[in-house]
Amino acid sequence: MQTDGINPKISRMANQIAMFMESKPEAEGIEGLSSHINDFWEPRMRRQFFQLIDAGGEGLRPLVIKASEKIRRPDPA
């Protein structure tokens, strides 16, 4: 899967949210992270996010990878 052309901010922002959520118990952190992204990230960003995940999620913190299962996949553009 292609990951060039994905805004490097996507992984930085996901990791930033993770760092806040990591101070919570894990289940709550996963819930917090996934609903945060579901609530605030528009489909275009989530699409890029899933491109990263589908390419193996390199550079993403483990909590992001775990939470990704609960993040809504947007319709393809």
Binding site: K9, F40, E42, P43, R44, M45
Partner: peptide, 11 residues
Amino acid sequence: EPGLRIPNMLD
């Protein structure tokens, strides 16, 4: 679905 924020618009 949520829309674009200013930084997203610019990106």
